[in-house]
Design a binder for these strands. Structure first.
Length: 317
RNA sequence: GCCGGGGUAGCUCAGAGGUAGAGCGCGGCCCUGAAAAGGCCGGCGUCGGCGGUUCGAUUCCGUCCCCCGGCA
């Protein structure tokens, strides 16, 4: 039996109501919220990343708006930031509640990463140029020569993963697969309670459509217009789901109707991928509904009450 | 009503006398520092209905129904 401070993790696809549930739990259990979201770490890109949708009231939310549009950010960076904030929240005697939509970031945070070389923009630029000149399959053949194990695990057309594997090899002079053997730096000192939100698929898809409409009604398109005056269109957050389509619309490449249609559609596909990723996450207690549903909230509180008698005892508010 | 074009997967469409395919969609899945990224797998079907010819018809013939143009 592992011991340590309790750490709540709420995971689930986009629009499943993670924030609403987190806020409710934070109010009841003296918690602080830590976002685990690869897009919310960016400043200024607020409406489309869902930052402005939830009503946080007095609850404090961390790991949101950390960096500027022109900065890079990785799963490793997230792990470092998140663990630092986690320690602070715990030191304050509050219950940390993580809302997780980015599977890779959550894994880096909880399970850690193997000690691999970090990203190298220069090296990448060269590799990508190489791929452009000699064709994508060229890089895969190169990887097969240098790190056969990784080459077998990565599809020849999966360029981003091939590039990463080569980037690791050229910096470490050792194949990625060997470096993995060192293991991961898992989070220690916490008892992790994972709550999964999984509403019925048709309901979730309907909710996604509604949420996109809400974001647009909140002035999303204007936000994009303003951001385009401040940052070059190549800035990473303009590539996020939704921002990508709205930028295309503002450039005259898509009608507004078509852009909205694509945003809804691609968001549904994204939610499906999130579900696939989270399904194999170990030790998750699943709830078949939305996090803003009072019935689900009661179920969750009851479940937590069993696991944390102390927490429920002083949460009679 | 007449002439022409067309009815094949959820959608757009290709195809051929031996019970059918593509793209998208949809579903399943993968993932160790750009992950809201990227990739892999799966055809999910009364080939409009009914007759006929044929060993065999979704394909050929007849007929009916429906859609789109044009002429009335």
């Amino acid at each position: 039996m592992r011991t340590g401070h309790p750490l709540l993790v709420i995971l689930g696809p986009t629009a499943s109501g993670k924030s609403a549930l987190a806020i409710r739990l934070a109010e009841r259990l003296a918690g602080e919220i830590l976002a685990c979201d690869s897009t919310q770490v960016y400043r200024d890109f607020d409406i489309g990343t869902g930052k402005d949708i939830a009503e946080y009231r007095g609850t404090s939310q961390h790991l949101v708006g950390l960096i500027g549009a022109l900065e890079g950010f990785t799963a490793g960076d997230y792990k470092e930031h998140a663990r630092r904030v986690l320690a602070q929240v715990t030191a304050r005697g509050h219950l940390p509640i993580v809302t997780a939509g980015s599977g890779l970031y959550l894994r880096a945070f909880l399970e850690g990463l193997s000690p691999l070389p970090r990203r190298s923009p220069e090296l990448r630029a060269r590799l990508v140029q190489c791929a452009g000149e000699r064709g994508g399959a060229y890089l895969h053949r190169m990887l097969a020569r240098l790190d056969a194990t990784s080459a077998r695990a990565i599809a020849p057309r999966d360029v981003p993963k091939i590039v990463r594997a080569l980037e690791v090899y050229f910096q470490a002079r050792r194949p990625r697969s060997e470096l993995f053997a060192a293991g991961r730096d898992a989070l220690e000192g916490y008892v992790v309670i994972k709550l999964g939100l999984l509403p019925p698929r048709p309901d979730l898809y309907r909710r996604i459509d509604e949420r996109v409409e809400q974001m647009l009604a909140a002035g999303w398109l204007d936000e994009v217009r303003r951001l385009l005056q401040r940052f070059p269109p190549t800035a990473k957050p303009f590539g996020f789901l939704g921002y990508r389509q709205l930028v295309a619309h503002l450039r005259g490449e898509l009608t507004f109707t078509e852009a909205v249609k694509r945003i809804k559609h691609e968001t549904r596909q994204f939610a499906k991928r999130q579900i696939t990723w989270f399904r194999k996450e170990p030790d998750v207690r699943w709830f078949a509904g939305f996090g803003d549903d009072p019935a689900i909230q009661r179920e969750v509180l009851a479940y937590i009450g069993e696991l944390l008698p102390a927490a429920s005892a002083n949460s009679s508010a």
